[in-house]
Amino acid sequence: MKIVVCVKQVPDTTEVKIDPKTNTLMRQGVPSIVNPHDKHALEMALSLRDQLGGSVTVLSMGPMQSQEALRECLAMGADHAVLLSDRAFGGADTLATSYTLAAGIRKIGEFDLIICGKQAIDGDTAQVGPEMAEHLGIPHITYASQVEAGTDGAPVRVHRDGEEGTEILEVKLPVLLTVTHYGDGPRLPVVKGIRRAFRAEVDVWSVNDVEVDRNVLGLKGSPTQVRRIFSPDKRCGCEMIPGDACAAASVVATKLRELRIIGVGS
């Protein structure tokens, strides 16, 4: 199976802080990581390849620094890595980003499966995956948690998680999946994988290497624009309940009764 996994290098937003004096983002010193959902997507791809044979290519769009993220994916076991990097791609919203990635995939060539993380932890939109599928004219399934592949050419079964439970869907390849969590989580790179990754070439493609309409790239090709960035409101005034565990528990139980959560005959 030929699988392409889209990954993004993102700042570790769990480490980002807000400057309390100016109420602005403090991005300095925040480590860059592979978007966690993308690692789960990669793990799904690697598991399928280990099971069925084939290859896994990781694709990213970003500045040259994104090569670090791609190397980590190679260390985990991906076979090839491609980076789309060019000034022309910069400032893109999800429509322009998905368009660019789709162009990259067309250049990669034949594929059976595209797997993306559901959302990036900086943009948090969860839109690029389905939009890519639309640009490529292939079906998509979001919230995929499991894939069962049959023999050559047979349709695959995908488990899709919903609010009320899981559905099982059947679709012929090629298809694009988006993933939040997969199995026990992404594998750690093994030592030999790390050595291989640092000896491998990451293909870097500029705007001239892909077939695109320049008017739909980057900031120019983005229908949505950011009007304003601000810090979320801070709520004030938490009522601290004093006393030891029993005293505090008693107060909470009273509050729950007042809210009619308990003592209303369930």
Partner: peptide, 12 residues
């Protein structure tokens, strides 16, 4: 960078 990746891997 390779050694840093190894360190991070062992930490995880």
């Amino acid at each position: 960078a390779e050694q840093e990746m190894l360190r991070k891997t062992v930490q995880e």
